[in-house]
Design a protein around this nucleic acid. Structure first.
Lengths: 215, 215, 215, 215
DNA sequence: TATGAATGAGGATTCATTCAT
DNA sequence: CATGAATGAATCCTCATTCAT
C-alpha cells in the first residue's frame, strides 16, 4: 500500500517515523483536528526538528496520510484480534460498530479522514484512502457472511448491499457524533446503530423497541 | 434563526449581501471547496471590495455560514415545492433523495457542510447548523408519516428511527460521492439509496434486486 | 512598459511604491546584491510591513524588476539631460560611458541586472529587460549618428555595429569592475573604454597611447 | 592554484571527486544554473551521498569553484590543442572565439562564472577566479602576438589593449547569448565577434561588411 | 571513506481582517 | 455604504551543513 510499509521496523530511522506519527496523533487530538496542528507542534512533541520530520515525510499532508493509514491499520488489527475472540457473529458485529465509530468528540481519526477527503489528492493518495475504506467494508462484509453461514443472520440480506448501507450510515453517524449533535449526547450512537443492524440481520429476535434517540 | 434572516429583502444592502453570497457559491464550486476560496476571490466575482463584504458579514466563517443557510433554505424550498406536486409519497421520497444527495463531485453544499462542521463554532453557529440538519430530518420524517397515513408505506417502521438512519446513510453516501469513490462513478448513489428506502418502507413490493454497486 | 508606469504619482499608494523601491535600492547596496536582501530588510527600511510591499508588487522578483526598470529610467533620464547640455558628441560619448559603467564595486544596478538575467523569467519580464537594454543601445547609437552627422566622428564606422560591440564591451567591463578585477583598481575602466571608442570614431586625432591597464 | 589541484589523479578519492564534478556540471545544465542545483541533485547523479560530497569539497561554493576551474582547464586544454593544429593565427582567433563564447543558452560555464562572480568570495577564491580569467586573456594575447610576428595581423594594434577589449566584448556578448537576446537568435555572435576582431587585426583585407545583427 | 539521519535557520508568501477616508 | 491600502501573524518547506556511526 504505502511505499513505506515494507520498510517498517528498520533499525534507526523508523523509530523517528513512528515517534513523529505518535506525536502527530497526540497533537491532532489536542488541537482538535489536523488543520489546527502545525509541523512545529508535532516536532516539539516528538522531540525532533521540523526539518527532521519533513526529511522523513516530505510534506505535511503526506505525514497526515501516513498517520491515518498507520492508525487505521492499528485499529483494524485490534478489531480483528478482538473479533477473533468473540463468541458469536452478533458479538463481532457489536465490536465492529464499537471500533468503527468515533469514541468521542475529540477522536483524531475522524478529523484525519475528513481532512484527507476534503482536499484534492494525488492519485496514489486517493488510492490509499480508497483501500483503507474498502478494508473496513471487507471486514464488515466478512462478519455478515460468517453470521449467515453460521445461521445467526438471515440470508434474506445481501451482504455486500448491507455493508455499503451500514458503513455509509456509520459514517454519517460519525459526523453527527463528532459535531456533537445533541441527539447523541445522551443516547449512544453505538447502541442505535447496532440495534438497527440486528433488526435487519436477525429479524425474528424478540422485538427490541426502536432505539430511543430518534424518538 | 440567524440574526440576519429577518432582514432579508430589506431595501438596499441586501442586494450586496445576496451578490456576495452568490459569488461565494460560485467561487466555492470553482475552487473546489471553501478552504480554497479567498475573500478576494469572492469580492472579485461579486464586483465589490473585500472590505465591503466584511462590512456585511463580519468574518469569513460567518459569510460561509450564511451562505450555507441561504442555499439550504433555497434548496429546501425547492424540494418542498417539488414534493407538493408529487403524486405519491414514494415520489416524494425519491425527490428527497435527489435533492439531498450532492449532484456531483464539485457540489458546493457538501464542502460547506464539512467545512462548518469541522471547526469549533460559537454556540449560535452550532445551533444554526443543528437547525439546518433538523429541518431536513423533519422533511423526511414528514414524508414517511404521510406515506404511512396514506397506506403507501408500512407502519412497521418507526418514522423517527427510520429518518435518523436514512439521513445518516445519505450523509455517508454524500462523502463517498464527493470523494469520487469508484463505486459511485458508474452506479447511482441516488438509485441505491432509494431502493434501500423503498425495500424497507414498502416490503411487499415486487422484489427489486439489491442495487448493483454493492454487488 | 510596466503596467504600473501610468499610475505613477497617484495620490496615495504610489508613494508607498516609491518608498519601497528606494528602500530596496538602499538595501541591495548595503547587502551587496539582491540575493542577500530579504523582504523584511526592505520593509524595515521603508517603514512598512512586508505584507504591504507584497500587496503592491506581488512577489519579490517583481519588485526587483520594477526597481531595475525604475532606476534605469531615472539614470537614463539623467544621462539624457546631461547629454543635452554637452558641447560635443565626444562629450556625450564620455557621458554615456560614465553613466553606463558601474561607479563602484557596490553599485546596485549591476547586481540587479545579473540577478534578473540569471533566472528564468516570464515572457513579460524578458521583454522588459530586453527593452531596457535596447534603450541604452539606442542612446549610444544616437550619439554616434549625431557625431557622424556633425562631422565629429568618422563615417567609416557603422553606428549599429559599433553600438553592439561597444555596449557588449561595456557590459564585460562592468563585470570586471564589480568583481574588483585588480586591473581596474588603479586604472579607470571609464578612461579605457572611452579611449578605445574615440580611437575608433576619431582615428585622425593625435594619437593617445593605448591606455595603461592593458599593459 | 587550488589546494586540491596537486592532488589530482591521486589513487582513490579523486575518482569520487571527479564523479561529483561531472555530476555537478550535468545537474547545472539540467537545472539551468548553479542556483537551482541542490547538493542532493548532484549527489543523486553522482551516485553518492551528499555527506560524501561535502566530505571532499567542504561546502557547496567550493565545489562549484572547483568545477569551474576544472571545466575551464579542460576547455582551455582543448582550445590549445585545437589551436596547435590550426594553420594560421586567423584560424586560432576563430577557435578562441568559438571556444570562449557559450555554445548555447543552457551553457553551464557561464552560469558558473556569474554565480561565483556574484557573491563575495574569500581571497583564495577571488585569486583563483582572477587566474582563470587571466589565463584566457593570456591565450588570446598570445594568438595576437603570434599573428603579428607572422605578419598576419597588423602591428598597429597593441596586443594587451586589444585583448582586454576583446575579452570584455566577448563577456558582454556571452551575457546576451545566455539571456537569449533576440538579436543572437538568428545571427551568430561567433561570426559577429570574429568579424569585428578581423577588421581590426587585418584592416587591409577585402572589406567584409559589418555583420548583420547590428544592422 | 562513506552514509544518511538530523539539524535549524531562513524567508517568502498568503490572507483574513482592520481602518482611515 | 464602500473602498482598498495596510497590517502582520501564521507556517510550510528548503537545503546546506554537521556528525555519529
Amino acid at each position: 500500500m504505502s511505499d513505506r510499509i515494507e520498510r517498517k521496523r528498520q533499525p534507526s530511522g523508523d523509530d523517528a517515523r513512528e515517534r513523529a506519527m505518535r506525536a502527530a496523533i497526540a497533537a491532532i487530538a489536542e488541537k482538535g483536528g489536523p488543520g489546527g496542528v502545525r509541523m512545529a507542534d508535532i516536532a516539539a512533541r516528538a522531540g525532533m526538528s521540523t526539518g527532521h520530520i519533513l526529511y522523513h515525510f516530505g510534506r505535511k499532508d503526506r505525514l497526515l496520510l501516513e498517520v491515518l493509514a498507520w492508525s487505521e491499520a492499528d485499529l483494524g488489527a485490534r478489531f480483528e484480534e478482538a473479533a477473533a475472540g468473540a463468541p458469536s457473529s452478533t458479538g463481532k458485529l457489536a465490536l465492529f460498530v464499537r471500533y468503527y465509530l468515533p469514541r468521542q468528540q475529540g477522536d483524531e481519526r475522524y478529523g484525519l479522514w475528513t481532512h484527507m477527503f476534503a482536499r484534492p489528492q494525488d492519485e496514489a493518495s486517493r488510492q490509499l484512502l480508497t483501500d483503507l475504506s474498502d478494508t473496513w467494508d471487507a471486514r464488515l462484509e466478512a462478519v455478515v457472511r460468517e453470521g449467515q453461514a453460521g445461521g445467526e443472520f438471515t440470508t434474506a440480506v445481501d451482504p455486500a448491499d448491507f455493508t455499503v448501507r451500514a458503513v455509509a450510515m456509520l459514517n454519517g453517524l460519525s459526523g453527527d457524533v463528532m459535531f456533537g449533535r445533541p441527539r447523541w449526547l445522551d443516547a449512544s450512537a453505538d447502541a442505535f446503530a447496532l440495534a438497527a443492524f440486528e433488526r435487519e440481520l436477525r429479524p425474528d429476535q424478540p422485538d427490541r423497541p426502536p432505539s430511543s434517540p430518534a424518538a
